[in-house]
Amino acid sequence: MQGTDSSRTASHDRRTVTSWLLGTGVAASLASFFYPVARFLNPPQVAEAAVNEVDAGKVQDLKPNSGKIVKFGNKPALLVRVNDTEWKAFSAVCTHLNCTVQYQDARREIWCACHNGTYDLNGRVISGPPPKPLEELAVKFRGDEVVISRRA
């Protein structure tokens, strides 16, 4: 009787070991199939063209008390001609939720249409949800060309 018992235990043990080997083997191979898939889903970093300076058009093309959006690398920038001599430029990306802001000539403010945020002409928040001021860019002139650049 004792012999039967021990042989049953031995076969039970063998079965446990075999199942364990099979189970971990399958689990490991499945992990090796899906690891590449998980990595594949992760989009690689695409190098952004590092832009520090862009040509924003001619001085005479922008009337006093008006603004326009210009491409600054792959982000929009807002160029504002406050009056004949004073110019301002900001990153046009609203600090609230990434909408693109616009210049409102009637109120002489920068306004974001998405959630009604307003900034003054120094980029500071006047009202609405934006948490931070707009990033200000530098405006220079090269002949009659307006040039926008990142502030040092």
């Binding site: 590449p36 898939v37 990595r39 594949f40 992760n42 989009p43 690689p44």
Partner: peptide, 9 residues
Amino acid sequence: TRVEFGWLI
């Protein structure tokens, strides 16, 4: 060339 395991998929 850039996506991980992209060549394999």
